[in-house]
Write a protein that binds this DNA or RNA. Structure first.
Lengths: 194, 194, 194, 194
DNA sequence: CATGAATGAGACTTCATTCAT
DNA sequence: TATGAATGAAGTCTCATTCAT
């Protein structure tokens, strides 16, 4: 039933990002998104199943292009260390370049209902798998140690970057995320211990 | 006006944890919490300002006792490495011992409105400061390196543990969190690199 | 946001008059008014800000058309004495012709909250000014004495008519208000003294 | 069951006047009145049937002593004109001397529910009868005309004085009501006409 | 007599979704 | 395709009253 493509499909998603970033998740009513997208309320239901579908699609579109970008970039890099650096860099760059998207995915969308969060989790999984691959390459190429569980490491990597972005937003995006790339990478590689 | 202490105060908070864990944040109506606590709806308003206040108080009480426990435990430990291990252990133990509380603080309460999330953020800050102190001790005692920003390290530590717990809940608390303590500690200390 | 015009706008106001007249101010719930107007509860909020706005609009619409009628009628009359008679007549006729409206404005709406009463007071002010003009004309044309304060006279005129209508309602509108026009006019003009 | 006399009975009524005058009818909760009277909430129910009974008793006590004062005063005066003047004077003086009582009886209590207003109406009736007697005396002594309906005149007298006090309160009791006695009397006796 | 903690019924308002045009 | 007016379910909080102490 829902069209899921076309000019208005994108207009609605982009309007949703702007509205949620500006007003917050709980004040982002369908009618507000429709007005921002210059369509009628009902039109949204020609392109999306329901409101949740708008949010999930939003995350899917943005995350999809992000993952695609990451995969393309990592393919060109052979060193797992450099891949890890690039992954951190792209993750931070992507959100630093679009504050609104950062606010939406990092803060607002996490207030959504279990249904939406579940779907978001599935989408995120693909990204986590990319992280896994980088770790595995490092281990295989004997550049990383092999005495850790890769899932634990993956949680460290994702959890740290995620927390970094959240902190940055909470402090109103006042400093540069790019400056964090190497410090984070160094901690990932060498830890805090001597 | 609100009493904020007494037998029923605690009964209501505990009922709120159970109800939110069972039904989810959006299905945790005041009337449901009241019934679970064996009090009348109106009684809740003798002990709390409003529904938000119940949620904030819940987080405050639980987090408060957790932070207090952590501080007490760390005081008895001189080695920053062991302090860090104990911090990870207590964090994971606290939530592993109370699955319901874990679900509420880790998943459900994050769906709450900005007002509540803001207050929760302030409460969390105290915990982050404890982490900071451990890091600083490690640096001062020259057991940790000094070429990293302590805030970056703090975000790694908190972000990693937080992501670990969230993953664990998402997988229905099927494995033991305690087994993660040392692996996480090792990553914090030595990183993934060789 | 609220539309404030249209077929349903009027239907809701008229339904409100009927419901308040029948059940009283405190038993005139939004849902009851909606049902009486054959609209959904939510529809009321497409035409009015909130419930208070319905009540204020009700008074404003009815009083507005009344004042307009009075002004039109008085414009056609040159004699202040006849103007005064017409004013009394219209005031009584208007409410005698619509018992429900009489009950609502005279009895029920006076139980409303301060917010509503304040707005009602402002609307009433316009009517009091019309009374003032009649008095002033009478004085200027030397048909009325000039040794009284016009505000005192205005309070006499309004207070007397108002009390007359209230008494009439309290006695279940059993007698004719029209019969009171000349007796009241005569008292206004000549007082009780010889 | 309700005691209806005693030190606390009066304390509660006086507290009710103060609370209603200060906070308004809709913010005058039983608990607030109890606190103001320095008694427990439950104590009020030892002296009054319910909250309505407090309000009715309040009006009854205050109005009762007022009517009694008026009757005593009028008994000492033989001239109906002077009786009328004294009635106006006492009515205005009584309320000018107690702004809080004026606000409560003139504004706030009129927002009460039909039950209370009905009882208040019955109490008021006695006062209206006093006015009737003055009019009748005037007519009998041929000082007043006899070509008017005494009920119409009574409504003029009560309505005018009532409106005068209400206006005065609405303008924050800024001017002296006593100055209005003779102007009002003159209008009652001679009207506005020449 | 006095207390005051506890009760629980009841209503305004929002907003995702539909469907006649 | 597109519109947008209309729908109606559902939840927080207040406060008069009670009754065990």
């Amino acid at each position: 039933m829902a069209k899921r493509t076309g000019e208005k499909y994108e207009a609605i998603i982009d309007a949703a990002v702007r509205v949620i970033a500006k007003y917050g998740y709980h004040q982002a009513q369908v009618s507000k998104i429709a007005r921002e997208a210059n369509v009628a309320d009902g039109t949204i239901y020609l392109y999306f199943e329901n409101k949740d579908d708008v949010l999930i699609s939003l995350f899917n579109e943005k995350m999809g292009s992000f993952i695609s970008d990451v995969e393309t970039a990592l393919d060109k890099i052979s060193s797992p260390v450099e891949q890890l650096r690039e992954l951190i860099r792209l993750h931070l760059a992507y959100l630093e370049n679009d504050h609104q998207l950062a606010i939406v995915t990092q803060i607002e969308l996490r207030q959504s209902n279990p249904e939406v969060r579940k779907k978001i989790g599935l989408i995120l999984k693909k990204y986590l798998e990319v992280i896994d691959q980088v770790i595995q390459s490092g281990v295989e190429q004997q550049l990383f140690r092999s005495d850790f569980d890769s899932r634990t490491a993956r949680r460290m990597i994702f959890g740290t970057i995620d927390e970094t972005v959240t902190s940055w937003i909470m402090k109103d995006c006042k400093y540069s995320l790019m400056d964090q790339v190497d410090p984070i990478l160094r901690l990932f590689l060498g830890g805090v211990g001597k």
